[in-house]
Design a protein around this nucleic acid. Structure first.
Lengths: 241, 241
DNA sequence: AGCGTATGGATTGCTCAACAATTCATCAAG
DNA sequence: CTTGATGAATTGTTGAGCAATCCATACGCT
Protein backbone atom coordinates (compact mmCIF):
# COMPACT_ATOMS: atom_id res chain seq x y z
CA UNK A 1 0.00 0.00 0.00
CA UNK A 2 2.65 2.47 1.00
CA UNK A 3 4.86 1.14 -1.73
CA UNK A 4 2.12 1.57 -4.27
CA UNK A 5 1.53 5.19 -3.31
CA UNK A 6 5.23 5.80 -3.60
CA UNK A 7 5.35 4.32 -7.07
CA UNK A 8 2.58 6.56 -8.24
CA UNK A 9 4.38 9.59 -6.94
CA UNK A 10 7.54 8.68 -8.72
CA UNK A 11 5.83 7.75 -11.96
CA UNK A 12 3.95 11.04 -11.98
CA UNK A 13 6.09 13.85 -10.63
CA UNK A 14 3.53 16.51 -11.43
CA UNK A 15 1.13 14.96 -8.94
CA UNK A 16 -1.81 14.76 -11.31
CA UNK A 17 -2.55 11.19 -10.25
CA UNK A 18 -2.61 12.27 -6.63
CA UNK A 19 -4.92 15.12 -7.39
CA UNK A 20 -7.40 12.59 -8.69
CA UNK A 21 -7.56 11.21 -5.17
CA UNK A 22 -8.72 14.50 -3.73
CA UNK A 23 -12.33 13.44 -4.09
CA UNK A 24 -11.63 10.37 -2.00
CA UNK A 25 -11.43 12.58 1.03
CA UNK A 26 -15.20 12.52 1.27
CA UNK A 27 -15.04 8.75 1.58
CA UNK A 28 -12.44 8.49 4.27
CA UNK A 29 -14.05 11.11 6.49
CA UNK A 30 -17.53 9.86 7.33
CA UNK A 31 -20.41 12.29 7.21
CA UNK A 32 -20.74 14.42 10.33
CA UNK A 33 -23.36 13.30 12.81
CA UNK A 34 -25.64 16.27 12.25
CA UNK A 35 -25.72 15.50 8.55
CA UNK A 36 -26.70 11.92 9.12
CA UNK A 37 -29.43 12.93 11.52
CA UNK A 38 -30.75 15.44 9.02
CA UNK A 39 -30.77 12.79 6.31
CA UNK A 40 -32.56 10.32 8.54
CA UNK A 41 -35.25 12.79 9.56
CA UNK A 42 -35.68 14.09 6.04
CA UNK A 43 -36.18 10.54 4.85
CA UNK A 44 -38.83 9.82 7.44
CA UNK A 45 -40.61 12.96 6.41
CA UNK A 46 -40.57 12.61 2.63
CA UNK A 47 -41.28 8.91 2.97
CA UNK A 48 -44.45 9.89 4.74
CA UNK A 49 -43.74 8.14 8.01
CA UNK A 50 -43.89 11.48 9.77
CA UNK A 51 -47.12 13.25 8.97
CA UNK A 52 -47.32 16.94 8.05
CA UNK A 53 -48.02 18.88 11.20
CA UNK A 54 -46.37 16.23 13.32
CA UNK A 55 -44.10 17.36 16.09
CA UNK A 56 -40.43 16.48 16.52
CA UNK A 57 -39.36 16.81 20.15
CA UNK A 58 -35.63 17.24 20.48
CA UNK A 59 -35.20 14.86 23.37
CA UNK A 60 -37.13 12.08 21.69
CA UNK A 61 -35.01 12.35 18.57
CA UNK A 62 -31.85 12.56 20.61
CA UNK A 63 -32.75 9.36 22.38
CA UNK A 64 -34.06 7.56 19.31
CA UNK A 65 -31.02 8.31 17.17
CA UNK A 66 -28.40 8.00 19.86
CA UNK A 67 -26.93 11.46 19.45
CA UNK A 68 -26.88 14.45 21.73
CA UNK A 69 -29.59 17.05 21.78
CA UNK A 70 -27.14 19.62 20.45
CA UNK A 71 -26.52 17.53 17.37
CA UNK A 72 -30.24 17.04 16.86
CA UNK A 73 -30.67 20.77 17.12
CA UNK A 74 -28.11 21.38 14.42
CA UNK A 75 -29.84 18.92 12.12
CA UNK A 76 -33.27 20.39 12.75
CA UNK A 77 -32.03 23.88 11.94
CA UNK A 78 -30.83 22.66 8.60
CA UNK A 79 -34.16 21.05 7.79
CA UNK A 80 -35.97 24.22 8.77
CA UNK A 81 -33.81 26.10 6.28
CA UNK A 82 -34.84 23.53 3.67
CA UNK A 83 -38.51 24.18 4.48
CA UNK A 84 -39.07 20.53 5.28
CA UNK A 85 -39.71 21.50 8.89
CA UNK A 86 -41.10 24.60 10.50
CA UNK A 87 -39.87 26.05 13.76
CA UNK A 88 -42.31 27.74 16.13
CA UNK A 89 -40.26 29.64 18.68
CA UNK A 90 -40.35 28.09 22.13
CA UNK A 91 -42.80 25.47 20.94
CA UNK A 92 -40.74 23.15 18.81
CA UNK A 93 -40.28 22.07 15.23
CA UNK A 94 -43.03 20.46 13.19
CA UNK A 95 -43.27 18.79 9.85
CA UNK A 96 -44.27 21.54 7.43
CA UNK A 97 -47.88 21.70 6.34
CA UNK A 98 -47.77 23.26 2.87
CA UNK A 99 -50.86 25.25 2.02
CA UNK A 100 -52.34 26.29 -1.31
CA UNK A 101 -50.07 29.33 -1.40
CA UNK A 102 -47.02 27.13 -1.06
CA UNK A 103 -48.25 24.99 -3.93
CA UNK A 104 -48.73 28.04 -6.13
CA UNK A 105 -45.31 29.37 -5.23
CA UNK A 106 -43.57 26.09 -5.92
CA UNK A 107 -45.29 25.75 -9.27
CA UNK A 108 -44.44 29.27 -10.25
CA UNK A 109 -40.81 28.36 -9.70
CA UNK A 110 -41.06 25.01 -11.45
CA UNK A 111 -42.93 26.54 -14.37
CA UNK A 112 -40.03 28.88 -14.95
CA UNK A 113 -37.22 26.45 -14.40
CA UNK A 114 -38.30 23.18 -15.95
CA UNK A 115 -39.45 24.32 -19.40
CA UNK A 116 -36.46 26.63 -19.63
CA UNK A 117 -34.13 23.75 -18.79
CA UNK A 118 -35.64 21.70 -21.60
CA UNK A 119 -35.63 24.57 -24.07
CA UNK A 120 -32.19 26.03 -23.42
CA UNK A 121 -30.38 23.53 -21.22
CA UNK A 122 -26.75 23.09 -22.15
CA UNK A 123 -27.01 19.34 -21.66
CA UNK A 124 -30.27 18.85 -23.52
CA UNK A 125 -28.45 16.86 -26.17
CA UNK A 126 -25.96 15.17 -23.89
CA UNK A 127 -26.81 11.45 -24.13
CA UNK A 128 -26.03 10.88 -20.48
CA UNK A 129 -28.43 13.58 -19.28
CA UNK A 130 -31.14 12.48 -21.68
CA UNK A 131 -30.56 8.90 -20.63
CA UNK A 132 -31.59 9.80 -17.12
CA UNK A 133 -34.93 10.92 -18.47
CA UNK A 134 -35.42 7.60 -20.21
CA UNK A 135 -34.31 5.73 -17.09
CA UNK A 136 -36.85 7.57 -14.94
CA UNK A 137 -39.61 6.73 -17.41
CA UNK A 138 -38.72 3.06 -17.30
CA UNK A 139 -38.44 3.13 -13.53
CA UNK A 140 -41.97 4.52 -13.40
CA UNK A 141 -43.35 1.89 -15.76
CA UNK A 142 -41.71 -0.89 -13.79
CA UNK A 143 -43.12 0.43 -10.53
CA UNK A 144 -46.57 0.72 -12.05
CA UNK A 145 -46.35 -2.87 -13.27
CA UNK A 146 -45.68 -3.91 -9.67
CA UNK A 147 -48.56 -1.70 -8.49
CA UNK A 148 -45.95 0.09 -6.39
CA UNK A 149 -47.54 3.54 -6.28
CA UNK A 150 -45.07 5.22 -3.97
CA UNK A 151 -42.49 3.88 -6.40
CA UNK A 152 -44.31 5.58 -9.27
CA UNK A 153 -44.32 8.82 -7.33
CA UNK A 154 -40.59 8.48 -6.70
CA UNK A 155 -39.88 7.80 -10.35
CA UNK A 156 -41.87 10.87 -11.24
CA UNK A 157 -39.64 12.94 -9.01
CA UNK A 158 -36.58 11.43 -10.63
CA UNK A 159 -38.01 12.40 -13.98
CA UNK A 160 -38.36 16.02 -12.99
CA UNK A 161 -34.92 16.08 -11.48
CA UNK A 162 -33.61 14.72 -14.75
CA UNK A 163 -35.44 17.49 -16.60
CA UNK A 164 -33.67 20.14 -14.56
CA UNK A 165 -30.49 18.17 -14.98
CA UNK A 166 -30.62 19.13 -18.65
CA UNK A 167 -29.58 22.60 -17.55
CA UNK A 168 -26.30 21.25 -16.24
CA UNK A 169 -26.19 23.33 -13.08
CA UNK A 170 -25.45 21.78 -9.71
CA UNK A 171 -27.09 24.69 -7.99
CA UNK A 172 -30.30 24.34 -9.93
CA UNK A 173 -30.33 20.62 -9.27
CA UNK A 174 -30.05 21.28 -5.59
CA UNK A 175 -32.83 23.83 -5.64
CA UNK A 176 -35.07 21.42 -7.51
CA UNK A 177 -34.39 18.73 -4.92
CA UNK A 178 -35.74 21.10 -2.27
CA UNK A 179 -38.81 21.96 -4.29
CA UNK A 180 -39.54 18.29 -4.90
CA UNK A 181 -39.11 17.43 -1.23
CA UNK A 182 -41.72 20.05 -0.49
CA UNK A 183 -43.98 18.53 -3.13
CA UNK A 184 -43.83 15.18 -1.39
CA UNK A 185 -45.23 16.86 1.68
CA UNK A 186 -48.02 18.19 -0.47
CA UNK A 187 -48.82 14.73 -1.74
CA UNK A 188 -48.99 13.38 1.77
CA UNK A 189 -51.79 15.80 2.48
CA UNK A 190 -53.76 14.43 -0.43
CA UNK A 191 -55.35 11.06 -0.84
CA UNK A 192 -55.20 9.02 -4.01
CA UNK A 193 -51.55 9.14 -4.90
CA UNK A 194 -52.22 6.48 -7.49
CA UNK A 195 -54.82 8.34 -9.48
CA UNK A 196 -52.61 11.38 -9.34
CA UNK A 197 -49.35 10.06 -10.70
CA UNK A 198 -50.44 7.32 -13.03
CA UNK A 199 -51.65 9.50 -15.93
CA UNK A 200 -48.25 11.14 -16.14
CA UNK A 201 -46.44 7.95 -17.10
CA UNK A 202 -47.40 8.42 -20.73
CA UNK A 203 -46.78 12.13 -20.57
CA UNK A 204 -43.25 11.61 -19.33
CA UNK A 205 -42.63 9.15 -22.10
CA UNK A 206 -43.87 11.60 -24.71
CA UNK A 207 -41.69 14.38 -23.33
CA UNK A 208 -38.67 12.13 -23.30
CA UNK A 209 -39.22 11.17 -26.92
CA UNK A 210 -39.45 14.80 -27.93
CA UNK A 211 -36.21 15.58 -26.15
CA UNK A 212 -34.51 12.58 -27.69
CA UNK A 213 -35.67 13.78 -31.10
CA UNK A 214 -34.21 17.21 -30.42
CA UNK A 215 -37.64 18.84 -30.50
CA UNK A 216 -36.83 20.96 -27.53
CA UNK A 217 -39.34 23.72 -28.07
CA UNK A 218 -42.23 21.27 -28.29
CA UNK A 219 -40.93 19.32 -25.34
CA UNK A 220 -40.73 22.50 -23.29
CA UNK A 221 -44.33 23.37 -24.10
CA UNK A 222 -45.36 19.87 -23.13
CA UNK A 223 -43.60 20.21 -19.78
CA UNK A 224 -45.30 23.53 -19.15
CA UNK A 225 -48.74 22.19 -19.87
CA UNK A 226 -47.95 19.15 -17.74
CA UNK A 227 -47.09 21.37 -14.80
CA UNK A 228 -50.12 23.56 -15.23
CA UNK A 229 -52.57 20.69 -15.16
CA UNK A 230 -50.80 19.09 -12.22
CA UNK A 231 -50.98 22.33 -10.29
CA UNK A 232 -54.67 22.75 -11.05
CA UNK A 233 -55.34 19.21 -10.00
CA UNK A 234 -53.53 19.63 -6.71
CA UNK A 235 -55.21 22.93 -5.95
CA UNK A 236 -58.57 21.35 -6.67
CA UNK A 237 -57.77 18.54 -4.26
CA UNK A 238 -56.76 21.13 -1.69
CA UNK A 239 -59.95 23.10 -2.13
CA UNK A 240 -62.02 20.36 -0.54
CA UNK A 241 -60.17 19.28 2.52
CA UNK B 1 -54.67 47.12 25.18
CA UNK B 2 -56.60 44.19 26.46
CA UNK B 3 -59.83 46.06 25.82
CA UNK B 4 -58.79 46.79 22.29
CA UNK B 5 -58.02 43.18 21.49
CA UNK B 6 -61.38 42.24 22.93
CA UNK B 7 -63.17 44.75 20.75
CA UNK B 8 -61.54 43.36 17.63
CA UNK B 9 -62.59 39.87 18.52
CA UNK B 10 -66.16 40.91 18.98
CA UNK B 11 -66.31 43.08 15.90
CA UNK B 12 -64.92 40.30 13.74
CA UNK B 13 -66.14 36.92 14.93
CA UNK B 14 -64.62 35.08 12.00
CA UNK B 15 -61.16 36.05 13.22
CA UNK B 16 -59.92 37.34 9.89
CA UNK B 17 -58.50 40.43 11.57
CA UNK B 18 -56.68 38.26 14.04
CA UNK B 19 -55.24 36.13 11.30
CA UNK B 20 -53.62 39.26 9.92
CA UNK B 21 -51.67 39.49 13.17
CA UNK B 22 -50.12 36.10 12.72
CA UNK B 23 -47.11 37.67 11.06
CA UNK B 24 -46.58 39.86 14.09
CA UNK B 25 -45.34 36.84 15.98
CA UNK B 26 -42.03 37.25 14.26
CA UNK B 27 -41.78 40.73 15.75
CA UNK B 28 -42.57 39.89 19.33
CA UNK B 29 -40.17 36.95 19.39
CA UNK B 30 -36.71 38.25 18.56
CA UNK B 31 -34.62 36.36 16.08
CA UNK B 32 -32.85 33.33 17.53
CA UNK B 33 -29.22 33.77 18.40
CA UNK B 34 -27.94 31.40 15.72
CA UNK B 35 -29.79 33.39 13.09
CA UNK B 36 -28.27 36.65 14.21
CA UNK B 37 -24.81 35.15 14.23
CA UNK B 38 -25.34 33.79 10.73
CA UNK B 39 -26.51 37.21 9.55
CA UNK B 40 -23.53 38.91 11.12
CA UNK B 41 -21.01 36.54 9.59
CA UNK B 42 -22.71 36.57 6.22
CA UNK B 43 -22.56 40.33 6.24
CA UNK B 44 -18.88 40.39 7.02
CA UNK B 45 -18.29 37.99 4.18
CA UNK B 46 -20.36 39.59 1.44
CA UNK B 47 -19.18 43.02 2.55
CA UNK B 48 -15.69 41.77 1.86
CA UNK B 49 -14.31 42.26 5.34
CA UNK B 50 -13.59 38.55 5.47
CA UNK B 51 -11.53 37.48 2.49
CA UNK B 52 -12.30 34.38 0.42
CA UNK B 53 -10.23 31.54 1.79
CA UNK B 54 -10.09 33.13 5.23
CA UNK B 55 -10.59 30.89 8.19
CA UNK B 56 -13.32 31.21 10.82
CA UNK B 57 -12.25 29.57 14.09
CA UNK B 58 -15.22 28.69 16.25
CA UNK B 59 -13.74 29.87 19.50
CA UNK B 60 -12.77 33.24 18.10
CA UNK B 61 -16.28 33.84 16.77
CA UNK B 62 -17.81 32.61 19.98
CA UNK B 63 -15.76 35.08 21.94
CA UNK B 64 -16.15 37.95 19.50
CA UNK B 65 -19.92 37.67 19.27
CA UNK B 66 -20.61 36.72 22.85
CA UNK B 67 -22.42 33.48 22.15
CA UNK B 68 -21.54 29.90 22.90
CA UNK B 69 -19.54 27.77 20.59
CA UNK B 70 -22.57 25.56 19.96
CA UNK B 71 -24.53 28.50 18.68
CA UNK B 72 -21.66 29.54 16.45
CA UNK B 73 -21.56 26.01 15.12
CA UNK B 74 -25.24 26.12 14.23
CA UNK B 75 -24.79 29.39 12.38
CA UNK B 76 -21.76 28.13 10.50
CA UNK B 77 -23.62 25.03 9.37
CA UNK B 78 -26.31 27.20 7.90
CA UNK B 79 -23.79 29.32 6.01
CA UNK B 80 -22.12 26.20 4.70
CA UNK B 81 -25.48 25.08 3.34
CA UNK B 82 -25.75 28.49 1.67
CA UNK B 83 -22.35 27.95 0.06
CA UNK B 84 -21.02 31.14 1.60
CA UNK B 85 -18.64 29.07 3.70
CA UNK B 86 -16.97 25.74 3.13
CA UNK B 87 -16.37 23.16 5.81
CA UNK B 88 -13.26 21.00 5.75
CA UNK B 89 -13.77 18.18 8.21
CA UNK B 90 -11.64 18.45 11.30
CA UNK B 91 -9.98 21.54 9.88
CA UNK B 92 -12.56 24.23 10.17
CA UNK B 93 -14.77 26.42 8.05
CA UNK B 94 -13.43 28.88 5.51
CA UNK B 95 -14.87 31.63 3.40
CA UNK B 96 -15.68 29.99 0.08
CA UNK B 97 -13.30 30.57 -2.81
CA UNK B 98 -15.46 30.29 -5.91
CA UNK B 99 -13.58 29.03 -8.93
CA UNK B 100 -14.31 29.33 -12.64
CA UNK B 101 -16.54 26.26 -12.48
CA UNK B 102 -18.65 27.89 -9.80
CA UNK B 103 -18.99 30.99 -11.95
CA UNK B 104 -20.12 28.93 -14.91
CA UNK B 105 -22.59 27.02 -12.78
CA UNK B 106 -24.07 30.15 -11.27
CA UNK B 107 -24.45 31.76 -14.65
CA UNK B 108 -26.08 28.69 -16.11
CA UNK B 109 -28.69 28.98 -13.38
CA UNK B 110 -29.09 32.73 -13.74
CA UNK B 111 -29.31 32.47 -17.51
CA UNK B 112 -32.27 30.15 -17.14
CA UNK B 113 -34.04 31.97 -14.35
CA UNK B 114 -33.66 35.65 -15.05
CA UNK B 115 -34.73 35.86 -18.69
CA UNK B 116 -37.59 33.46 -17.98
CA UNK B 117 -38.76 35.63 -15.10
CA UNK B 118 -38.82 38.65 -17.40
CA UNK B 119 -40.48 36.79 -20.24
CA UNK B 120 -43.13 34.85 -18.34
CA UNK B 121 -43.18 36.25 -14.81
CA UNK B 122 -46.65 36.61 -13.38
CA UNK B 123 -45.76 39.98 -11.89
CA UNK B 124 -44.05 41.40 -14.95
CA UNK B 125 -46.80 43.96 -15.32
CA UNK B 126 -47.41 44.52 -11.64
CA UNK B 127 -46.45 48.19 -11.05
CA UNK B 128 -45.03 47.40 -7.65
CA UNK B 129 -42.67 44.73 -8.96
CA UNK B 130 -41.64 46.86 -11.92
CA UNK B 131 -41.18 49.80 -9.59
CA UNK B 132 -38.47 47.89 -7.79
CA UNK B 133 -36.55 47.65 -11.04
CA UNK B 134 -36.76 51.38 -11.53
CA UNK B 135 -35.77 51.98 -7.91
CA UNK B 136 -32.68 49.81 -8.29
CA UNK B 137 -31.68 51.71 -11.42
CA UNK B 138 -31.96 55.02 -9.60
CA UNK B 139 -30.11 53.64 -6.61
CA UNK B 140 -27.29 52.69 -8.92
CA UNK B 141 -27.16 56.07 -10.61
CA UNK B 142 -27.15 57.86 -7.27
CA UNK B 143 -24.33 55.68 -6.00
CA UNK B 144 -22.33 56.28 -9.19
CA UNK B 145 -22.82 60.02 -8.80
CA UNK B 146 -21.28 59.73 -5.33
CA UNK B 147 -18.48 57.58 -6.76
CA UNK B 148 -19.65 54.93 -4.29
CA UNK B 149 -18.64 51.82 -6.22
CA UNK B 150 -19.57 49.24 -3.66
CA UNK B 151 -22.92 51.03 -3.65
CA UNK B 152 -23.18 50.57 -7.40
CA UNK B 153 -22.43 46.89 -7.01
CA UNK B 154 -25.13 46.61 -4.34
CA UNK B 155 -27.66 48.39 -6.53
CA UNK B 156 -26.82 46.00 -9.33
CA UNK B 157 -27.65 43.09 -7.08
CA UNK B 158 -30.92 44.75 -6.12
CA UNK B 159 -31.69 45.09 -9.80
CA UNK B 160 -31.24 41.39 -10.44
CA UNK B 161 -33.25 40.47 -7.40
CA UNK B 162 -35.99 42.70 -8.73
CA UNK B 163 -35.80 40.91 -12.07
CA UNK B 164 -36.40 37.57 -10.43
CA UNK B 165 -39.09 39.22 -8.32
CA UNK B 166 -41.09 39.56 -11.52
CA UNK B 167 -41.71 35.83 -11.25
CA UNK B 168 -43.56 36.32 -8.00
CA UNK B 169 -42.12 33.33 -6.21
CA UNK B 170 -40.70 33.56 -2.71
CA UNK B 171 -38.69 30.42 -3.27
CA UNK B 172 -37.07 31.74 -6.41
CA UNK B 173 -36.31 35.02 -4.67
CA UNK B 174 -34.56 33.14 -1.94
CA UNK B 175 -32.57 31.06 -4.38
CA UNK B 176 -31.48 34.17 -6.22
CA UNK B 177 -30.34 35.74 -2.97
CA UNK B 178 -28.01 32.79 -2.50
CA UNK B 179 -26.67 32.99 -6.03
CA UNK B 180 -26.02 36.69 -5.66
CA UNK B 181 -24.27 36.22 -2.33
CA UNK B 182 -21.98 33.80 -4.08
CA UNK B 183 -21.39 36.34 -6.82
CA UNK B 184 -20.20 38.86 -4.27
CA UNK B 185 -17.54 36.39 -3.28
CA UNK B 186 -16.54 36.17 -6.91
CA UNK B 187 -16.21 39.95 -7.16
CA UNK B 188 -14.01 40.01 -4.11
CA UNK B 189 -11.56 37.79 -5.95
CA UNK B 190 -11.39 40.28 -8.80
CA UNK B 191 -9.99 43.73 -8.86
CA UNK B 192 -11.60 46.68 -10.56
CA UNK B 193 -15.13 46.53 -9.25
CA UNK B 194 -15.73 49.93 -10.73
CA UNK B 195 -14.89 49.10 -14.29
CA UNK B 196 -16.95 45.99 -13.98
CA UNK B 197 -20.26 47.35 -12.77
CA UNK B 198 -20.35 50.81 -14.25
CA UNK B 199 -21.19 49.86 -17.85
CA UNK B 200 -24.28 48.05 -16.68
CA UNK B 201 -25.98 51.16 -15.36
CA UNK B 202 -27.24 52.04 -18.82
CA UNK B 203 -28.06 48.43 -19.59
CA UNK B 204 -30.24 48.14 -16.51
CA UNK B 205 -32.01 51.32 -17.47
CA UNK B 206 -32.69 50.01 -20.96
CA UNK B 207 -34.03 46.71 -19.63
CA UNK B 208 -36.27 48.51 -17.19
CA UNK B 209 -37.71 50.68 -19.95
CA UNK B 210 -38.46 47.62 -22.05
CA UNK B 211 -40.24 45.95 -19.15
CA UNK B 212 -42.19 49.12 -18.42
CA UNK B 213 -43.23 49.23 -22.05
CA UNK B 214 -44.42 45.63 -21.86
CA UNK B 215 -41.78 44.50 -24.35
CA UNK B 216 -41.03 41.43 -22.34
CA UNK B 217 -39.53 39.31 -25.05
CA UNK B 218 -37.02 41.96 -26.01
CA UNK B 219 -36.27 42.67 -22.37
CA UNK B 220 -35.63 38.98 -21.76
CA UNK B 221 -33.18 38.83 -24.66
CA UNK B 222 -31.44 41.89 -23.33
CA UNK B 223 -31.09 40.28 -19.91
CA UNK B 224 -29.68 37.13 -21.46
CA UNK B 225 -27.10 38.98 -23.46
CA UNK B 226 -26.25 41.05 -20.39
CA UNK B 227 -25.59 37.89 -18.42
CA UNK B 228 -23.53 36.30 -21.16
CA UNK B 229 -21.18 39.22 -21.49
CA UNK B 230 -20.86 39.55 -17.73
CA UNK B 231 -19.97 35.90 -17.43
CA UNK B 232 -17.39 36.14 -20.19
CA UNK B 233 -15.88 39.20 -18.57
CA UNK B 234 -15.62 37.50 -15.19
CA UNK B 235 -14.15 34.32 -16.63
CA UNK B 236 -11.60 36.40 -18.50
CA UNK B 237 -10.64 38.15 -15.29
CA UNK B 238 -10.33 34.76 -13.62
CA UNK B 239 -8.14 33.40 -16.39
CA UNK B 240 -5.27 35.67 -15.39
CA UNK B 241 -5.04 35.48 -11.64
C1' DA C 1 -71.46 27.17 32.78
C1' DG C 2 -68.16 30.94 31.69
C1' DC C 3 -64.04 33.53 32.35
C1' DG C 4 -59.69 35.12 34.52
C1' DT C 5 -55.91 33.43 37.22
C1' DA C 6 -52.48 30.46 39.65
C1' DT C 7 -49.62 26.41 39.51
C1' DG C 8 -46.45 22.95 37.89
C1' DG C 9 -44.58 20.05 34.46
C1' DA C 10 -42.55 19.75 30.00
C1' DT C 11 -39.88 21.70 26.33
C1' DT C 12 -37.15 24.96 24.14
C1' DG C 13 -33.10 28.19 23.75
C1' DC C 14 -28.81 28.71 25.10
C1' DT C 15 -24.56 28.25 27.89
C1' DC C 16 -20.61 26.02 29.92
C1' DA C 17 -17.30 22.46 30.56
C1' DA C 18 -15.18 18.43 29.10
C1' DC C 19 -12.87 14.86 26.13
C1' DA C 20 -11.56 11.96 22.11
C1' DA C 21 -10.07 12.51 17.47
C1' DT C 22 -7.68 15.00 14.19
C1' DT C 23 -4.69 18.32 12.11
C1' DC C 24 -0.49 20.76 11.81
C1' DA C 25 3.93 22.69 12.96
C1' DT C 26 8.23 21.56 14.97
C1' DC C 27 12.03 18.95 15.53
C1' DA C 28 14.87 14.86 15.76
C1' DA C 29 16.56 10.91 13.40
C1' DG C 30 17.59 8.01 9.53
C1' DC D 1 15.18 15.38 2.23
C1' DT D 2 12.00 12.18 3.54
C1' DT D 3 10.27 9.62 7.86
C1' DG D 4 8.66 9.54 12.48
C1' DA D 5 7.75 11.33 16.98
C1' DT D 6 6.04 15.06 20.02
C1' DG D 7 2.75 18.34 21.39
C1' DA D 8 -0.22 22.32 20.91
C1' DA D 9 -4.46 23.88 18.88
C1' DT D 10 -8.92 23.00 16.91
C1' DT D 11 -12.82 20.36 15.72
C1' DG D 12 -16.65 17.02 16.65
C1' DT D 13 -19.61 15.60 19.99
C1' DT D 14 -21.42 14.85 24.43
C1' DG D 15 -23.64 15.88 28.82
C1' DA D 16 -25.51 18.66 32.36
C1' DG D 17 -27.80 22.63 33.65
C1' DC D 18 -30.74 26.83 33.86
C1' DA D 19 -33.90 30.69 32.51
C1' DA D 20 -37.83 31.54 29.61
C1' DT D 21 -41.81 29.96 27.58
C1' DC D 22 -45.73 27.19 26.70
C1' DC D 23 -49.60 24.26 28.02
C1' DA D 24 -52.83 21.61 30.63
C1' DT D 25 -54.96 21.45 34.75
C1' DA D 26 -57.00 23.07 38.64
C1' DC D 27 -58.89 26.89 41.27
C1' DG D 28 -61.73 30.81 42.23
C1' DC D 29 -65.13 34.07 41.15
C1' DT D 30 -69.36 35.68 38.97
Amino acid sequence: MVTYALDVTIADPAGAALASLAGARALVARAPAAERVADAVRNEVVEGRLRPGGRLPEQALSHALGVSRNTVREALSQLVAERVLVREPNRGVFVAVPDADAVRDVYRARLLIEPAAVREGERADDPEAVGRLRAAVQEGRAAAARADWPGVAGANQHFHRALVGLAGSERLDQQMALLLAEMRLVFHRMSGVREFHEPYLDGNDAITRLVEAGERERAAREVASYLRTAEAQILAAFADL
